[in-house]
Amino acid sequence: MLSSFYPVIATDRVRETADFYTKLMGFDITFEADWYVSLRRGGDLPYELAILDHTHPTIPKGYRNKVTGLLLNFEVDDVDAEWERLVVREGLTPTLEIRSEDFGQRHFIVTDPSGVLIDVITEIPPAEQYADRFVTNG
């Protein structure tokens, strides 16, 4: 039986990446070494994330590469408030400006210090052509 699941970001910027998630995204450190930081965001549905030095020997040879192509979705109650907090007040540079999508999201994208895309999302009603594509678990 699966007891946990979380992404691990392989990076050459362990400290800066950990700081991003603790200071801006609400995570707390649960373990910290110079090569690995384990993070947890508590609440009713806790979330975990880890950051690992991409050259660490626990990663098999041939796979010790920095993260590329990773997109993490952060669903929030008020994406416009998060835009104000992260982009306007904190000065993060948007990779994708805030906008509403026909498929049922209002969102924007920024990047963390390791180049991971952070998609900040609030669900909105989808346009008619997408409404019947959502699956409900009855």
Rank of each mutant, 00 (worst) to 15 (best):
E16F: 04
E16S: 10
T17E: 07
Y21C: 03
Y21G: 02
K23Q: 15
K23E: 15
L24A: 10
L24V: 04
M25E: 03
G26P: 05
G26C: 07
F27I: 07
I29E: 07
I29W: 02
E32A: 11
D34H: 09
Y36T: 01
L39N: 01
R40D: 01
R40W: 00
R41M: 15
L45K: 09
Y47A: 14
E48V: 00
E48S: 07
L49Y: 03
A50L: 08
I51R: 00
D53M: 00
H54R: 10
H54I: 00
P57L: 09
T58Q: 06
I59R: 08
P60W: 01
K61V: 13
G62D: 08
Y63F: 15
K66Y: 01
V67T: 14
T68W: 06
L70V: 13
L72F: 08
N73C: 09
N73E: 14
N73V: 12
E75I: 09
V79M: 06
V79H: 00
D80G: 13
A81G: 13
E84K: 15
R85I: 09
R89A: 15
G91K: 13
G91V: 07
P94C: 11
T95P: 00
L96S: 11
L96D: 10
L96H: 10
E97Q: 15
E97C: 06
R99W: 00
S100N: 11
S100R: 14
E101D: 12
E101W: 05
D102G: 10
Q105E: 15
Q105F: 03
R106I: 14
H107E: 15
H107W: 06
F108W: 11
F108Y: 12
F108S: 09
V110W: 05
D112A: 05
D112H: 03
D112W: 02
I118R: 01
D119S: 13
I121E: 04
T122W: 02
T122K: 10
E123R: 12
E123S: 13
E123D: 12
I124P: 04
I124T: 12
I124E: 04
P125C: 08
P125H: 11
P126C: 07
A127R: 06
E128P: 10
E128H: 06
R133V: 08
F134W: 11
F134N: 05
